[in-house]
Deep mutational scan, measured.
Amino acid sequence: LVRYRTISKIPQITLNFVDLKGDPFLASPTSDREIIAPKIKERTHNVTEKVTQVLSLGADVLPEYKLQAPRIHRWTILHYSPFKAVWDWLILLLVIYTAVFTPYSAAFLLKETEEGPPATECGYACQPLAVVDLIVDIMFIVDILINFRTTYVNANEEVVSHPGRIAVHYFKGWFLIDMVAAIPFDLLIFGSGSEELIGLLKTARLLRLVRVARKLDRYSEYGAAVLFLLMCTFALIAHWLACIWYAIGNMEQPHMDSRIGWLHNLGDQIGKPYNSSGLGGPSIKDKYVTALYFTFSSLTSVGFGNVSPNTNSEKIFSICVMLIGSLMYASIFGNVSAIIQRLYSGTARYHTQMLRVREFIRFHQIPNPLRQRLEEYFQHAWSYTNGIDMNAVLKGFPECLQADICLHLNRSLLQHCKPFRGATKGCLRALAMKFKTTHAPPGDTLVHAGDLLTALYFISRGSIEILRGDVVVAILGKNDIFGEPLNLYARPGKSNGDVRALTYCDLHKIHR
């Protein structure tokens, strides 16, 4: 019993810090008490220290592992850092350059016999395009090294910054494609005289377009951006097909006994025919423009016929181009109408809503002055909100995010209106959640004399007048207030005048 009563005193000691020596009952000389009392004092002292730490809000209350900052290894790049964003855009520009100039170089340097010394005699450094290609190869190699040090988000939505895990993730992902696209074939085969082989191998750079397509997928929600990307894709495919079309004609031209190829026909049409040795002929500019003209006309199913396939190889390629053109029509131009419709969806919704308003007016036989006010209010409210119901949009977000959005939407009023000066951010967040926005066209009466005042109004834009009878008592403008002081009276009061809008007004109100 003594032991039980001794232990039962522990909660009292913990909360009230009572010393055991003052209790005459606990001072009985028993061996059990002498053993338990020192333990009680020690526990009391420890609990006292913990309570003191909690009340003082000291940093040592938290466990040590929670006080440590997340460790980022040296030379690790955050995937959302500004440097990584700028670097990704730079790589994107280099990939676009590669997609345009690599097929052009591979096709127009394929057994090209233009006048001038061969590239091997001039030297590697004197070729501007080769120098640019070398810079692109170096940048792609540097990009691989950067990807080995860039964080990523795993399946659990955690940012991984450990170098080993980053390397394994990159090896399992895009490393092989990036490595093949970054191989400097110019340096590996330079001086061997195989410019045709170098041009063909350099087309491996186009593998990076797969990554670019995935990154550009984030802009699919913007109709104008999608339309622009589709047109660029169409032009890029036409450019690639033009390079292939020229390569076919250029390879067949020296081996044909009869002059029936499209390059021969082009030379005869523009007065620059090929001679018996295969030299001469149109310039590279004429060849490229004509090839691009043929691919565009074939892809769009126009086909004027002034550039036509004559050999079997050219006919087979033309059939493939027609098939590609039909697929592009289905996948690209078939979506253009939907994209344009999405661009004008706001206008369509406006006309639909206006039609419903006019049908309501016609069905209920609203008189002319009231009908005009109804239409003007709808037009003004639509121009202010673009038909978007803010309350319906915010309803799907958590309250903390709703408060931040409301604070942002009402920031101008909260910053410049005098009653809100000096208020804490928590108070402003709470008030912003209570605001209701209303609009009024010129001549609209917001409050009639004798109406119950259940709200306090803040003028965000425009001006109003307060009338008693036919006498203008006051004219209020931006950041002015009218209405009933909230919670100042037990019952809502009545208006002693009319409140009429002089201009288009936007008002925020808080109800009782």
Rank of each mutant, 00 (worst) to 15 (best):
L67S: 03
P70S: 08
R71M: 11
W75L: 08
Y80T: 07
V86N: 01
D88H: 01
L92A: 03
L93W: 01
L94T: 14
V100K: 01
Y104W: 01
S105H: 15
A107G: 01
K111N: 04
K111V: 04
P117E: 05
T120A: 08
Y124T: 03
P128L: 14
L129I: 03
V131L: 14
V131G: 01
V136D: 03
D143T: 01
I144V: 11
I146Q: 01
N156L: 12
V159H: 07
V160P: 01
H162V: 11
I166G: 01
H169P: 01
G173Y: 05
I177Y: 05
A181K: 01
I183C: 05
F185M: 10
F185I: 06
L187T: 10
G191A: 05
E195M: 14
L200F: 10
K202A: 01
T203Y: 01
L206V: 05
V212M: 06
K215G: 04
K215P: 01
L216H: 04
R218S: 05
Y219S: 05
S220K: 13
Y222C: 13
G223L: 04
V226S: 15
F228W: 04
L229Y: 05
L229G: 05
C232Q: 01
T233A: 14
H239M: 01
C243N: 01
G249V: 01
M251W: 13
P254T: 14
R259Q: 13
G261E: 01
W262G: 01
L263P: 01
L263K: 02
G267A: 14
Q269C: 02
G271L: 01
K272R: 03
N275A: 01
S276W: 01
S276D: 14
K287Y: 03
T295R: 01
T300G: 04
S301M: 05
G305Y: 01
V307F: 01
P309Q: 01
N310R: 01
N312T: 01
G325S: 01
G334I: 03
V336W: 03
V336F: 08
I339E: 03
A348L: 15
T352G: 10
R358C: 03
F360W: 01
P369D: 10
P369A: 04
Q372A: 04
R373P: 01
L374I: 07
F378C: 13
H380M: 04
W382L: 04
V393C: 08
P398I: 01
P398S: 04
D404L: 02
L409V: 08
N410T: 07
F420Q: 01
A423H: 01
A430N: 12
A432H: 02
A432Y: 03
K434C: 05
T438A: 11
P442W: 01
T445A: 07
T445Q: 13
A449S: 14
